[in-house]
């Protein structure tokens, strides 16, 4: 439980920082003070200033918004498309629809995700929206597979049989009976995908494919800090730690949730 609480704490800190940044940041991230550049951490700038004299703490707070928004919407896309597909596949077990969905899943998994992300941004230009798209697409088969797997076992339960005997259609059973019972699993998987999304967004914006300047993003802060790491290490350390703690928090939270929501798995932990 300590791990779960630590995870919850970290996630709340990040969410809190993002929320606060909507109304207040220590210093406007659009304002440049080149004379004040590359200052190490001080009281006025707890995380120092960057190569344009901007306050790193403020940039990290606003950057949290970018990371969270991208990862969250990408999870939304994955769930929104993947869960119905998974339910449909399970409801048509062994049928042609199941076959198409599962083969389609395998096909998407077979593509190298980063290459596809680069292609998407090469086509539509780099932006946060395209980063969301690139991450979201690869979330779809994950949710489809998890949903189908869990739904398949539910379809063999007595109460589903009862519902079928009562004359309910497969769509209705999927929505009314199967979905609520896989929801727990989806929340756990959602947390995991959320943390993977944060990492993916950092990776994409690190190679320049994410949110565009002046919108701060953690990955781009790292990329820009790279050449200065030897004389201004604070520029690389703080955004890196921000990513690390966010992902760590979400993973711990996800593990805790799994233990709480899915007692069958507790055995192995």
């Amino acid at each position: 439980m300590i791990a779960f609480r630590l995870g919850l704490f970290l996630v709340l800190v990040v969410l809190g920082a993002a929320a606060v940044s909507l109304v207040w940041v220590p210093q406007d991230v659009g304002a440049m003070a080149i004379a004040n550049k590359l200052k190490p951490p001080t009281l006025a700038h707890p995380m120092g200033t960057d190569h344009f004299g901007r306050d790193v703490l403020s940039m990290i707070m606003v950057g949290a918004r970018t990371s969270i928004a991208v990862a969250l919407v990408a999870v939304g896309i994955g769930m929104g498309v993947g869960v119905p597909l998974g339910l449909a596949a399970a409801a048509n077990r062994g049928g042609w629809l199941d076959e198409i969905i599962m083969r389609g899943n395998d096909l998407v998994f077979a593509f190298p995700s980063l290459v596809i992300a680069i292609l998407i941004t090469a086509t539509f230009g780099p932006s946060a929206v395209n980063a969301i798209l690139a991450i979201g697409i690869f979330n779809i088969p994950v949710f489809a597979r998890v949903t189908r797997g869990a739904a398949l076992s539910l379809w063999t339960r007595d109460w589903v049989m009862a519902a079928r005997v009562a004359g309910k259609g497969r769509v209705r059973i999927s929505v009314e009976h199967i979905l609520p019972n896989v929801a727990n699993l989806l929340i756990v998987q959602g947390t995991i995908q959320f943390s993977l999304g944060i990492l993916a967004e950092a990776g994409l914006s690190y190679v320049g494919l994410g949110a565009q300047p002046p919108t701060p993003s953690w990955g781009r802060m790292l990329a820009e800090s790279q050449t200065m790491i030897s004389f201004a290490p604070h520029l690389a350390i703080f955004p890196g730690l921000a990513i690390l703690f966010t992902v760590l928090g979400l993973n711990l939270l996800g593990d805790g949730l799994r233990d709480a929501l899915d007692p069958r798995l507790r055995r192995s932990r």
Partner: peptide, 22 residues
């Protein structure tokens, strides 16, 4: 392992270059 999963590997790589190469 929790830390290992959460560390962005390019960031880890940057830090390694700083320490072990430079």
């Amino acid at each position: 392992t929790q830390l290992g999963v959460a560390v962005p590997n390019f960031w880890f790589a940057m830090l390694m270059v700083l320490v072990f190469a430079i």
